[in-house]
Design a protein around this nucleic acid. Sequence first.
RNA 1: GCGCCGUUAGCUCAGCUGGAUAGAGCGUUGGUCUACGGAACCAAAGGCCAGGAGUUCGAAUCUCUUACGGCGCACCA
Length: 562
Amino acid sequence: MDYKRYIAEKINAEGVSTEEIAALLAVPPDPAMGDYALPCFRFAKVMRKSPVLIAQELAASIAPDGVIAEVSALNGYLNFKVNKAALAGQVLARILREGERYGASDVGAGRVVCIDYSSVNIAKPFHIGHLSTTVIGGALYRIFNFLGYRAVGINHLGDYGTQFGKLIAAYKKWGNREEVEKGGIHAINDLYVRFSNEADEEMEHEAREYFRLIESGDKEANELFNWFKSLTLAYVQTIYDRLHITFDSYAGERFYTDKMAPVVEELREKGLLKESEGAQIVDLEPYGMPPCLILRSDGASLYATRDLAAAIYRWNTYHFHKCLYVVAYQQNLHFRQVFKVLELMGKEWAKDLVHVAYGMVSLEDGAMSTRKGKVVWLEDVISRCVEKARAVLEEKNPALENKDEVAELVGVGAVAFGALCNNKIKDITFSYDRALNFDGETSVYLQYTCARAASVLAKAQAEGIAVEELPAFTPCAAESELVKQLALFPETVEQAAEKYEPSLISRCLLDVAKLFNKFYLECKIMQAEGDTRAFRLALTQASLTTLKNGLTLLGIGVPEKM
RNA sequence: GCGCCGUUAGCUCAGCUGGAUAGAGCGUUGGUCUACGGAACCAAAGGCCAGGAGUUCGAAUCUCUUACGGCGCACCA
């Protein structure tokens, strides 16, 4: 039930609608004051009375009932305490009933949300900077599906550009098949880096020629390119598998090669295209932006051209409700330009394109630089975290059977959580010290809490005690606070979708875990008896369900034991 | 120069559509060492919420402005 709504209906303030009151209802800073509070300051002018007096009068006018346990006035606030037993009964019953669907809904039924994330660049290994787009996108993908939308995960491959000409030139000069097969994507990357550092005019010329050969369908050039592409995709797949990331489409830049000409033609027809300094542009000066480059002076297409074609293709294919681009804030201007051009083209759906921008990753000694070899590879971070998890496991739980599997869940979870625990817009300075810290506000803490809860439930089951029986019970403060936090989960999931902010879920789960651990310490579960034990077991089960559902949305696995 | 973003405890960050004494984690100090799992719990210390002005009964939150930092600004993606 909607407590705010219920309470609002009980309040009879002159000239203020129930909706307004429900919107004004807040949660007091200290649970001792109450569960909900109405600040009365706003009514003072209209009612010509002091807020303190208004609160007192309103308090006197409301009689407690089965739902509202207590009404009081304090410093101009009208405070409500709800019936804790009724609240706990309702919340826990719902969680036990809905299980792994707790927090899910069908608000998005019939709507498609396209999510463009991760976007592998062919021939480039993932470094720590690719983590955010990958796990934030992956989390949004699951969150939208959970809310009933059909999410379409799109890996917009970076598979077009002159860099592939350079790569082939470098391979021809310095590389060989055996070495690349052995060294995989890093061997390819090394060739590219070497080209960047050592290429002379002649090689640059060769590179342009090879790029032209790829484009014109030359057999050898395309075979090489496709080889590099398949090596890259096989490599990223191993990382996606570990991070639980999936896609529905790998339509990348090359896919739009033949879809750009019609877009350019449409721009021309609509009178948006202009020549400037030899290039074809869309003038965006009236909107305070630099021009959007559509065609280079040599007639070649550009980044924006492909994104225009891609957006149009996605609309025609999916008729999306929203189309998200999970890309670093560096690209802010680019997306504003592309979205504006589409709007100028009369695409009414341009308003549904969203740049979901996140912050940049740097290292403690400055920005990463592949060319200088100053780079932290994602797979290295993952393996170090898994190794650390394996070592801690060996120390804390030597008897555990499937240590490797658990270490994988713990280590990989810690990596993903690093990009999911804070507001996505914040820049991140990567440090192994932080990544390898498993104490406090971490995914490991969440997983540990799950293992604790699961352990109690397993013990109850072993003793033949029913876990999902829910007696009427008046909870203590620790229990009640935990219940209230569990109740926030569904609306948190919705907010995470609305704001494209998975970290809201992370924060909610950390609060659940904190309150669960407090409850766990203060209230003995298995040592209690009768209704008390039954209630605490139900609360334990509900906490585990909520934590699991949230972690699953974040793409973080939950081991039974650790 | 213009634009976007950021600035909260020593460090890393929360702070919901403005609401009651600004909250966590890490680190520090001190407790809980017979446990349903100590990867935990409790407590202490630590803040002119970058500075200034404004709006408001009320501002970390909204507006303006300054400073500092990040990013971007025509033929790369």
